[in-house]
Structures are given as structure tokens and as C-alpha cells.
Design a protein around this nucleic acid. Structure first.
Lengths: 143, 143
DNA sequence: TATTGTTATACTCTATAACTATA
DNA sequence: TATAGTTATAGAGTATAACAATA
């Protein structure tokens, strides 16, 4: 079957495009974050803090170790972007954006959204076509 | 404009789906490579070697430093998957898959293609719709 | 006993700089 | 002088393990 070879080629072309798109999107994010003087991992943490969250929870959301969150929290605190506030359970500390942290988060998220590839390069109709295809790619039933 | 908020939401949903898809695809690749007892970076190198290539060229293709390619080449050689063969320019060494390297590459690429998300979850028609949208996302004119 | 956050430390991946041999 | 590959080393990013406080 010459069929197999050509299918293989189509598949790797599509996969590579997906990878390239995401790499470009990540590069965009890196650039935008740098514009706010933030390394990527701090920018991600700031965006994740849409409300005060236990450090444990943040670790799950960012899929990293608790000890690493301690690390991030220290850096964010040094910059005056978050503060650690005690939770009801006294083992827990919540990370909470400071006033300046909230302001930064607003500006950052607006910049990210405005810059998004999917807005810059696709029409509304394109996006309407794209969404269900991506959803299909994410449903893990047929395994 | 409540418009802006909802657009923002649509955008981040699409972007997140793209990221999730690629993460899943990469996880699949990691799993498949592990099935051949290869860490990801070695598997990528093996796939890149569809023909003997100067180490310099491989560095460009994998977008990494020459010194790192030396590193990869050592590991691949230890596994008996590649050999260094002298180029015409005597400064150059070509990395060339051994017989067993070629065999591995064939099986690996077949496994990758067969497992691809875009095959598992999309119909041929879906893929035909998806391709031009991804291409549009990759054309960097409208900046 | 289990869980939260912290500390100290170690590991993985990758790059930089200096080197050699060729060109 | 510039380039290909190598070596030794360093850095970024992240995890592991042991720990103190609390549940």
C-alpha cells in the first residue's frame, strides 16, 4: 500500500504544524511576559492566581512539585506581586495577589489575549470551524 | 464592551486546547519512544536521520548546540544505533544509522504514525478541514 | 498517622567557552 | 581566518528527601 506512506506523511505534517503553532504561541507568551519583566514560570503563576489559592492547589494546577511553588512564591513575594496569607487550616498558606499583582495580572492577561495567534490570523468563521475539531482531538474516548 | 471579555474567553479556550493537544501528542510520543527504550531526545534524533547527516546539520534541524549533538551521538553510538563516518571535508563527521538503527527507525516511525492523535480521532474529512486552518495559523504575514 | 509548606540538596537538560584538526 | 566536532564546565529549571507544624 502506497496509501500507508502518504497517510504517514499527512499525519506528520499535521502533527508538526500543531507543534509549530504551539511553539510560536509559547514564544509569543515568553516575549509578552518579558515585556512585563517576568520570566515565563512567574507569568504563568500570576495568571493562575485569579483568586487566592493554597500553594498545594497551585502546584496541582501548574503540575509541579510543592517545593517548587515555595520557590516561585518567594520570587513573586520579592517582587511585591503576592503575599502569603494564612488559611483556615493553619497548615495552609494561600497565595494572594497584592494590589500591584492584580494590576499586573490584568494587564498581562489583556496583552496575552490581544496578541493571540488565533485572533491575529483567524477570522471568526475560521475559529468557529476550528473549535469543534480541536475538541474532537481532545476527547479521549476512541483509544 | 462585554464583547471584549467573551472574545478573550474564546481565545484562551482555543489556545488552551491547542496547548493541551500538543501536550497529549508529546506524551504519546514519549510513551512510544519508551516502548523502544529510547528517551525523547534520542528518538527525535533517530527520526531525523532519514539519511546520513553532518552533526552540524542535525544541530540545526533539532535547534540545539553542536556540543549537545556530540552528547546525543555518543549515546546513540553506545546503543549501536549510529556510527560516525568521515565526510569528504575531513572536518566533518556524518551520523549514519547502523543496520539496527535503520530497523529501529522504521519501527519507531510506523508506531508514531499509527498512534497519531490526528489519525485516531479525526476523519479524513476532518483532517482536510483542519489543515488549511493550521496553515493559516502558521503564516506570519499579518503581524 | 497524614498533610502543608519549607529547606537543603541533587539531578537533568542544555548551553558557553576554550580547544583541535582541518579548510 | 573560519568552521566542525569535542571537552570541560556552568547554569536554569525542577525534583527528591527529610523536617517542622498542624490536623
Amino acid at each position: 500500500m502506497a496509501d500507508r506512506e502518504s497517510r504517514l506523511e499527512e499525519v506528520s505534517r499535521l502533527s508538526q504544524m500543531l507543534i509549530d503553532i504551539v511553539e510560536e504561541a509559547k514564544a509569543d507568551f515568553t516575549r509578552i511576559a518579558a515585556g512585563f519583566d517576568l520570566p515565563v514560570h512567574l507569568a504563568r503563576a500570576v495568571l493562575a492566581l485569579n483568586r487566592p489559592a493554597p500553594m498545594r492547589e497551585l502546584a496541582e494546577q501548574l503540575t509541579c512539585d510543592r517545593s517548587y511553588i515555595t520557590n516561585l512564591a518567594d520570587q513573586l513575594e520579592e517582587r511585591g506581586l503576592v503575599s502569603r496569607v494564612p488559611g483556615e487550616d493553619r497548615r495552609v498558606k494561600l497565595l494572594q495577589l497584592t494590589r500591584s499583582g492584580r494590576s499586573l495580572r490584568d494587564r498581562l492577561s489583556a496583552a496575552v489575549a490581544e496578541d493571540a495567534l488565533v485572533l491575529r490570523r483567524l477570522t471568526a468563521a475560521d475559529r468557529k470551524t476550528l473549535a469543534p475539531l480541536l475538541e474532537k482531538l481532545l476527547t479521549d474516548e476512541p483509544r
